[in-house]
Amino acid sequence: MSTYPPTQCGLATFTAALYEHLSRLPGHVGVVRVLDDPDGGPPAAEVVADLVNGSRASAAAAVHTLNGYDVVVVQHEYGIYGGFDGADVLEVVEALTVPTMVVLHTVLENPTSQQRWILERLVTAADVVVTMAETARDRLVEYYGVDLARIVVIPHGAIDHRSMRGTRSAGPRPLILTWGLLGPGKGIEWAIDAMQGLRDLRPRYLVIGKTHPKVLKRDGEEYRRSLAVRARERGVADIVEFDASYLELPALANLVECADVVLLPYDSPDQVTSGVLIEAVAAGRPVVSTAFPHAVELLAGGSGLIVPQRDPGALALSLRRVLTEPGLAEEMAASAASQAPSLVWSAVAQRYRSAAASLVAAS
């Protein structure tokens, strides 16, 4: 149960990739699609029901459908379900009578009382709780009192780039890449400021991705326009390029392969899951990232450099090191390559299936 294409958001992309690889394994997999609008576009063949936010009838139908399966996997993010902070998900999950895995894409260290209430009820209703990083697991134990034995850490999946190695074509200018749905909190402001310190290298900083649908609905393209204004004011409009495309996975894989360095300048100190980070490491690309928890954990082995949040000078210095220091990018790529086999979608799907099989056996 999750958002699902044609909805364009991180959870929809995640679930589509997980479905694709689970469906290659023995058994039958269906998708209950979460929608804000009942006219959410024609469903794919694997969509067995729609959960329309705000519709009690569709919630009851979703529960009936889900209870016909052996195991239910619920993707959870506060913004995708109906009700205040997405509280309507509880009505569905607490009505399930089959073993349930809840996958937590966000685990806040300092939640609001409402967010804490939702998460505590969710994990109580779940048979297994999945996090994508050890940091998130540790937060559940320390701040939410969840029994460690009920938590499984399964990484966010990534495209298998190993068969693509060697296809990279370097351009005349070093390519610094940031991608994902655009909105406040991504830290693009500080990355733009950092480009001032790299003019002598003539980099191309490409920021690719549509504006997040919820940001677009609330503010239109004001945030994207503010970034373009900032680039002009800083005198780096010739270095910074915005592309409002939403890339499907094959196109994204090709683009990531061409990057000299992937830049994650995120503001949030709470982020415990980043599909962009996983994709970059799986592709063997050097990473420069701010010190959000998932990056600190995943890059500790040497596949990236960590800098403080909101520090353009530190960003510029680390980017310069990757682009100019002899052997550094190659060392980072080798470290990333050693991590890649456990991060690709085929390995991740197998871990979900194994966890589900254990639940069925136990029930």
Rank of each mutant, 00 (worst) to 15 (best):
M1N: 02
M1C: 09
P5K: 07
P5W: 12
P5D: 07
P6G: 09
Q8N: 14
C9V: 06
G10V: 11
G10K: 11
L11R: 10
L11H: 13
F14C: 08
T15M: 12
L18C: 02
E20W: 12
H21F: 00
L22W: 14
L22F: 14
S23N: 14
R24D: 03
R24P: 01
L25I: 12
P26S: 08
G27V: 08
G27R: 06
H28D: 15
H28E: 15
G30C: 07
V34Y: 04
L35A: 03
D36P: 15
P38M: 10
D39K: 15
P43G: 09
A44K: 06
E46H: 11
V47A: 09
V48I: 12
A49C: 14
A49S: 14
A49F: 13
D50M: 13
L51E: 01
N53K: 10
N53M: 14
N53I: 15
N53S: 09
G54R: 00
S55I: 09
R56I: 13
R56Y: 10
R56M: 12
A57W: 00
A57K: 00
S58I: 13
A60Q: 04
A62Q: 00
H64F: 15
T65R: 05
T65Q: 03
T65P: 03
T65G: 03
L66T: 01
L66P: 00
N67Y: 01
Y69R: 02
D70A: 04
V73F: 10
H76E: 10
Y78E: 01
I80D: 01
Y81S: 05
G83K: 05
G86K: 06
A87I: 13
A87R: 11
V89S: 08
V89W: 11
V93Q: 07
A95V: 12
A95C: 13
A95L: 10
V98L: 06
P99G: 06
P99T: 08
P99R: 07
P99D: 07
V102W: 08
V102S: 05
H105N: 08
H105L: 05
T106P: 09
T106E: 10
T106H: 10
P111M: 02
P111A: 04
R116F: 09
R116A: 10
R116M: 06
L119I: 05
E120W: 15
R121E: 08
R121C: 09
R121S: 06
L122S: 07
V123D: 04
V123C: 09
V123Y: 10
T124Y: 14
V130E: 03
V130Y: 05
A133N: 11
E134D: 10
T135M: 01
T135S: 05
A136Y: 04
A136C: 07
D138W: 06
R139Y: 09
L140A: 01
L140Q: 06
L140K: 05
V141W: 08
V141Q: 04
V141H: 06
E142A: 12
G145W: 02
